[in-house]
Design a protein around this nucleic acid. Structure first.
Lengths: 129, 129
DNA sequence: GCTTGCGTTGACGTGAGCGTCAAGGTTTAG
DNA sequence: CTAAACCTTGACGCTCACGTCAACGCAAGC
């Protein structure tokens, strides 16, 4: 299948797929006229990337998973590097949950006119997805 | 006090303070030589902005609070617009907590070789702080 | 033959909150 | 007097995952 169809079936855009390729995450065959040609394996790979993004992982974080699949493994998360990414993300999510619980208490207190004082985070703190 | 001292006392940078001014959040007097001049009210305002950022609000969201203070109120969150911002953020935080709990379960299951299938969010979903 | 709808590469734009020069003027310590 | 340490404005850089043109080639239906 060509890039338009893959995009449609994966629920994304051709731009995103070309971007993945430029990042070395999605390599495609070329037909004689220069068109990219994909198969079902590519579709599964794109779905894997989307799944990783859905848990808040970056495309950089997706590299170990792609490498794992390219190494012939059944699933992208059966390799040590991939599992390490999962563990790291889990720790981030836990920290994020803690922080958001604190923020929630702060907001509730403020809305109840209690005037608390939120302790600011020492370093830049980021929660995503 | 001048901009360097205000930055130091607020634990931020001169660049940030000038940026706040460019956004209309922090207006300063000028000495004859063009230097910005601040007082304790400005310091409290900067602290207020930092506090709002700490709960994940944007500088845009801080506008109602600044306006509330400029209108002569004791605290920036005693005006309806400010409280509405709090309520909106609270809803965001709640949604974020739900989403992160789901993500957490997904990660735990994957790390336990359970191979679940994470339902992707329909629209772009963002959690911050 | 012409239009329409695919595909290609390349380059710039987006948002948020500043960081980081650059090139100068001012104040202060020695 | 001089050098260091302030201050000024202006402009570009940064992150991240693409969106949005621009300008072009290729293929199929009428």
């Amino acid at each position: 299948m060509r890039i338009g169809e893959l995009a449609k079936r994966a629920g994304t855009t051709t731009r995103a797929l070309r971007f993945y390729e430029s990042e070395g995450l999605l390599e495609a065959q070329r037909t004689p006229n220069g068109y990219r040609e994909y198969d079902e394996h590519h579709l599964r790979l794109v779905r894997e990337i989307q799944s990783l993004q859905a848990v808040g992982l970056s495309l950089e974080d997706a590299r170990p998973f792609v490498a794992c699949l390219r190494a012939g493994h059944e699933s992208g998360d059966s390799c040590p590097d991939s599992r390490e990414v999962y563990r790291r993300r889990l720790a981030e999510v836990d920290a994020c949950l803690d922080r958001l619980a604190t923020v929630r208490e702060f907001l509730l207190a403020r809305l109840a006119f209690q005037d608390p004082c939120l302790v600011p985070e020492p370093k830049e703190f980021q929660c995503s997805n």
